[in-house]
Design a protein around this nucleic acid. Sequence first.
DNA 1: GCAATATACATAATATACTTAGGTATGTCA
DNA 2: TGACATACCTAAGTATATTATGTATATTGC
Lengths: 112, 112
Amino acid sequence: MQNKTLIKGNLETIILKLLQDNGEMYGYQISKRVKKMTDAEIQITEGALYPALHKLEAAGNLDIRQQTIDGRARKYYCISKEGKKEVARKIAEFETFVSSMYMILNPVAKCK
Amino acid sequence: MQNKTLIKGNLETIILKLLQDNGEMYGYQISKRVKKMTDAEIQITEGALYPALHKLEAAGNLDIRQQTIDGRARKYYCISKEGKKEVARKIAEFETFVSSMYMILNPVAKCK
DNA sequence: GCAATATACATAATATACTTAGGTATGTCA
DNA sequence: TGACATACCTAAGTATATTATGTATATTGC
């Protein structure tokens, strides 16, 4: 992705949606999964990912479970009931925005 | 629009595309047009609009023509040759990003 | 006639949400 | 044993908006 600014405002949506679909995941896993799913088009940097996870947890949208696997600490996150409401809202918001953008990018002739 | 951050990175695209489709326009007109076209879903604030116009002009993507109409100064902008290349690039970028987002929001089952 | 609203431009201060860069630590593979 | 992968983290810098404020003229309603 050349212009990386397009991810702005969509990072939390991505994280919440992935957790909703896949049950619990840990941060590193999320970043790899997003890269793979989007053919490396969207790459979440660690400097954005971890603060976002902490923020979502603090807001009550995620629950956390820590575990050590193969000597490495992992923090598994899963979406909370509040988080499910939030992700639905965020996806709707994204779709509305995209729809609005296409009103400008693909203007349709109006009837009188 | 609740989350106004979604416009980030798309403002220049909107301005360039409108000017490409409508010939010359002035700032105030652009902001009103966008509001109308998107049913007020996207509203460009003046604090974002005017600096964006100046930046696009400085980058050679817009040409400017000043005129006074009914005692009020207006600055008409129109897209340059460079601007046309730029808007094509930005629209492609937006579409790629949206497509990538939908790979996450609407994941499709993969064949083995 | 005058106040409120619309038109038309502009900039400064502030906020947000990223990127970049740097750090710690363990495991794996050539 | 040195590079790369895994797994977490934070601080500083940057980009791009919002909010607030300013100037000035025209129009509209009471």
